[in-house]
Structures are given as structure tokens and as C-alpha cells.
Design a protein around this nucleic acid. Structure first.
Lengths: 144, 144
DNA sequence: CTTGACTCCGTACTATGGTACTGAGTTAAT
DNA sequence: ATTAACTCAGTACCATAGTACGGAGTCAAG
């Protein structure tokens, strides 16, 4: 039964040793059993759990969300409904981000097109656009 | 000469009073003159400077980048070349983000399509995909 | 003159995802 | 037995963009 020590798990999973302790503190990795000396004795599945975390991060899930996903997988009689729900919510979030970025991109493209990079700054359309008066009253954020 | 006090500037610019002090500490707002009492006496242009900051943030510039933009506008004999360069770099960055998000979106869409939300978790393709070995049947849409 | 609103400064705290450091104890090999 | 490498816990720190708080001083109106 090849239980692993911290550095082994870290190396196999491709993360820093400190990251393991961080995940444990955050409750995303369960506390492993200890030897008499206090050293952690990780079960080998820990490595795949960390890889799960890393793959989910690549899909844009936060550690908090990944924790929920992982907690679901150990819940008795769990159905995949919640998982699908989270994936759909994340999908909507990603689409929203893409939308925002597209808007930024379009604005920046327009600005770059109008700027030849040769004029003095006073005539730079980018600076001008950033400096100009806002389209219409976007002044208030609530008076507390 | 209508010099403004902190709360007035904050209200006109739509930001928190603390934010003004934060910007000043960060060097993105110049230190205003003070009254004998120590109170800040903001010139009215401060308001448009903050609105510049807010608009640039909406375009995805960080405070550090905005500081550079603002420093450029006060540099003597400045040409708009650097501004254009920064806008182009930001554009490339935004395009890269969009690309990454599109990949995430595609992967998540594939996963969601395969999950009916009715099965037990053990049969959920989303969990399965996250748990599986990286190289086998993974829904791989381009870059990571 | 008193009251309430405003302002000052320094510091601590929020969230996110880790990284780095210290000083002590443990393990494994020679 | 010595020594190098590893591990422990706790804490501080990185960047980002602010927000909150406490105690003291100031300003304007009544």
C-alpha cells in the first residue's frame, strides 16, 4: 500500500508542496492520516483529486466551486443534477465574460484605428476618447 | 475658483472617498494642495481624471497601466505612439482571453450536452471527465 | 458654544490563489 | 553517528482594487 509523502504527491500532481497545505487548510483536500512523527501519509488517490482540481480550474471554476463539486462526488445518493446546474451556470458566466471582452475589443479596435501614433498626444484619439465627457449622465452611484 | 473637497470629488466622480485616498497613495492621483487645516483642496480637473481612470478600467486597463497612460499625457513633447502601442497590447491580451474562454465554453458545452442531470453521480459525464486520466477520452478543444 | 457632518491619518481587512520563510523535528543513507 | 533532505506548524507576504474602522481634529449652522 504505497502511501505518499507530501513531496511525492506534489511532484506527481505537478503542484508546489505549499499548495497541498493550502488546499488542506481550505478544506479542498481532506486531512490525511499522520504517522507517529506527524508526517502526512497521503492515499494515492490524492494525486487524482488534485488533478481534478487543476482540470476544473482550467474550465474556470474557482476553488470554492471545485470544493462543492468534490463534496458532491462523495455525497450519498447524489444525482448529477447539481453538477449539470453548476456547469450551466459557469457556462453562462463564461459567455457573459466573452461578451464583455468583445465589447472592449471593439472599442479598442476603433480607437487604435483612429490613432496613427505620430501625432502629439493632445491630438491622440485614444486619450481624447478616454478624457471626453461621458455620453450622458453616468455620474451617480448612490448617495449613502 | 471652485476647489473641491474630498466628498465633493467623490460624489461627482461616482467613487468612494476612500478610493480617492487609495488612488493618491498609488500615485495615480496627484497630491492636491492642502488648506491650513490639512484638508485636501482638489482642483476641479480631478473629477475628469477619475472618470478617465474609470473609463480605462472598463476597457480592461489595470491601475498600473492607467497610471502610465496618465503620466504620458503630462510628459512634454509626448507622441501618441506609446499610447497606441499600449492599446494594441491590450487588444492582443483581450483577444487571447476571448480565445481561452471560447475553449472553456466549448468544453463545458460538450460536457453539459452529455449530462442529463438524472443519473447518479457515478455516471455523470462531467464528473467523469474531470476525474479521468488526462490523456484518454477527454473533450479536448484546442489549447489549454 | 454646541452639534453634526466632514476630514485627517494609519492600519487592518475583504477576496483569490497561492508562495516564502523560520526554526524545529524526522527520515534515510552512508 | 552524522548529515542531507525532507517535513512540520504558523505566519507573513505577493498582486489586485479597493473598503472599513477608530480616534482626533475641523467646519458651518443654529
Amino acid at each position: 500500500m504505497p502511501s505518499l509523502r507530501t513531496a511525492q504527491v506534489a511532484r506527481l500532481a505537478g503542484v508546489n508542496v505549499e499548495t497541498l497545505r493550502f488546499y488542506e487548510r481550505e478544506g479542498i483536500l481532506p486531512e490525511p492520516p499522520r504517522r507517529a512523527s506527524g508526517y502526512r501519509d497521503y492515499p494515492p488517490e490524492t494525486v487524482s483529486r488534485i488533478r481534478f482540481i487543476k482540470r476544473a480550474q482550467e474550465l474556470g471554476f474557482s476553488l470554492k466551486e471545485i470544493k462543492e463539486l468534490l463534496d458532491l462526488t462523495t455525497a450519498p445518493r447524489a444525482k448529477s443534477g447539481r453538477v449539470r446546474q453548476m456547469a450551466e451556470a459557469k457556462l453562462a458566466e463564461i459567455e457573459h465574460k466573452i461578451h464583455d471582452l468583445e465589447a472592449m475589443k471593439q472599442t479598442l479596435m476603433d480607437l487604435v484605428c483612429g490613432c496613427d501614433g505620430r501625432r502629439p498626444l493632445a491630438a491622440c484619439p485614444i486619450i481624447e476618447s478616454l478624457s471626453g465627457c461621458p455620453r450622458s449622465g453616468e455620474t451617480q452611484t448612490g448617495t449613502s
